[in-house]
Amino acid sequence: MSPTTPAVAPAARFTDLLAAEWIKMRSLRSTYWVLVLSAVVAIAINVNAVHSDLPYIDQPPPPGPDMRPFKYDPLFHGLNGIACGVMALAAAAFGAITVFGEYGTGMIRTTLAAVPDRGAVITAKVALVTAITLLLGTAVSATSFFTTNAMLASRHVGLSIDDPGCLRAVAAYALVVPVCALIGLAFGAVLRHATASIVAVVGLLFIVPLLFGGDRYRFLKEIGNHLPLAAQSRLGLNPDSYTGLGTCPGTITGSWIALAAWALVSVAVAMTVVRRRDV
């Protein structure tokens, strides 16, 4: 090679992209503080919900109108929807900020100048966001389940992970967190604005489901059954509980498919937008 010939830098490996994305995420202290605090809050909500119920378990109420005896549901209380909503919102915000944060600061230009392959860049973001939020969701779900059921053991109403529906409920509670993170990532890629992305996430996760409730119109109920938090709620339902499913209940298979579809569509949207739109 001639002395005047410039050396060609080797192409970035995927592991290099993962390392670069990890540095970006780690450098923003607010991101991991939000995730850690939301996990702690979610576990505290679940534990407190069961702890508050202990006096009532000792003195169960009389049978209801159907004359069935009271039966406490550890899954409903120990993996409750409020804590799930906290984690879902935090994960969605985290996913969104990994994209709109770079566009807001202009760092995306540096990233794409160093790695022109936009598909590889967004794939690295998706992989890291999914891994982090899946780990966090699993920690919250498993800790909440085993802690709350250990508290209920003395009342002889606790459940084991081997009991019907328990493993499915714990898995769904964990998986909805990365699914919501990918939804947030997609909104961040499309909107590229902090406020707009967070408002869109809140609207989809918490406002839109209000439009698809009730049992009067089947097609509306079917749509509502396949929204992210509704699908998780159906998968977390205790087969032994007395909770009614309404006239148009979601199915177990359909709920799993819904969660997978939300994740895949979100990744596809983010990938398409980042590759086709100008910086």
Rank of each mutant, 00 (worst) to 15 (best):
P6V: 14
A7N: 00
V8K: 08
P10E: 12
A11D: 12
A12Y: 03
F14D: 12
T15S: 11
D16C: 10
D16W: 12
L17K: 03
A19R: 13
A20H: 00
E21M: 02
E21D: 15
E21V: 07
I23Y: 06
I23E: 01
K24H: 14
K24L: 08
L28K: 04
T31D: 03
W33Q: 06
V34G: 07
V34E: 08
V36R: 10
A39T: 01
A42G: 03
A42W: 01
I43W: 01
I45Q: 09
V47E: 13
H51M: 11
S52G: 10
L54R: 14
P55E: 05
P55L: 13
Y56E: 07
Y56P: 00
I57C: 09
Q59V: 06
R68T: 10
P74F: 11
L75S: 10
L75G: 06
F76C: 00
F76P: 00
G78S: 07
I82R: 12
C84L: 09
V86P: 01
V86E: 02
A90W: 01
A91C: 05
A91Y: 07
A92G: 15
A93P: 14
F94E: 02
F94N: 05
I97R: 00
G101D: 08
E102Q: 10
G104Y: 14
G104D: 11
G106M: 05
M107G: 04
M107I: 04
M107S: 14
I108L: 11
R109E: 02
T110H: 14
T111S: 13
L112F: 15
A114D: 02
V115Q: 13
V121Y: 13
I122C: 11
I122W: 02
V126T: 14
L128D: 12
V129Y: 09
L135A: 14
L135M: 15
L135H: 04
L136F: 09
G137H: 03
V140R: 06
A142S: 06
S144Y: 03
N149M: 05
A150H: 10
M151S: 07
L152E: 06
A153T: 04
R155P: 00
H156S: 11
V157C: 15
G158M: 09
G158F: 09
S160C: 01
D163N: 13
P164G: 11
G165A: 07
L167H: 03
A169M: 00
V170P: 11
A174Q: 01
C180I: 08
A181D: 07
A181I: 09
I183C: 12
F187S: 10
G188C: 02
G188T: 14
L191A: 10
R192G: 01
A196F: 01
I198P: 04
V202I: 13
L204H: 05
F206S: 04
L211Y: 15
G214I: 10
G214D: 04
R216M: 06
K221I: 05
I223V: 14
H226Q: 07
L229W: 01
Q232L: 01
Q232N: 06
G236L: 12
G236V: 05
G236S: 14
L237G: 05
N238H: 08
P239K: 04
Y242V: 06
T243D: 05
L245I: 04
C248D: 15
T251C: 12
T251W: 07
T253C: 03
T253G: 15
I257F: 08
I257A: 15
L259H: 10
V265S: 03
V267W: 06
A270V: 05
V274N: 08
R275D: 02
